[in-house]
Amino acid sequence: MSIIDLTSMGEPQKDIKNQINNRLKKLQDEVSEFCYQCAKCTSGCEAHKLLELEPHKIVALLKRGLIDEMLNSDVIWTCMSCFKCRERCPQKVAPVEILFALKNIAVASGKPIPGKYSAMLQSILSNGLIQDVQTISDRNNQAIKRDKLNLPDLSKPVDTNKFQLVLSKLAIEKI
């Protein structure tokens, strides 16, 4: 007995589907199976017009268990996390959170992390913040840095060794 998607020869991946559903239940108390495909999410999706993200299709593919298709697509990285889909869903489904789960799984399985995420991660590991203090320019094109502005010292992790140790342990943990 089997179900096969003839366009990709993909088969439902029950284990990873259950893993995602359990995670959503745990973190957001969300049950994607309740989706009835009204597409209210996609109608209002901030990323749809520009980047062709279709949240209702993400939910449908999850329900069908066709996970690899999504993990292999860049489209999961187009979500702007505006949370409109979750806010307005009549069945309390949260496509935005499914997308977070999918991206996490893609990263954990070694797929490339796009854009500046790696740099931000590196920065958090080394000084606790996504970026170090920046030099900016004011309206008259004068360079300005934090220390010129009479602001208190930046708050960041004091014991960086301990901090790094925990974060590196986190990388291999699962929710």
């Binding site: 954990a108 992790p157 699962k174």
Partner: peptide
């Protein structure tokens, strides 16, 4: 002292 990033920018990478 001792605060760090809230973690939200990393939610796509590792929500834990």
């Amino acid at each position: 002292k001792d605060f760090s990033c809230c973690g939200e920018p990393m939610k796509s990478v590792n929500q834990l």
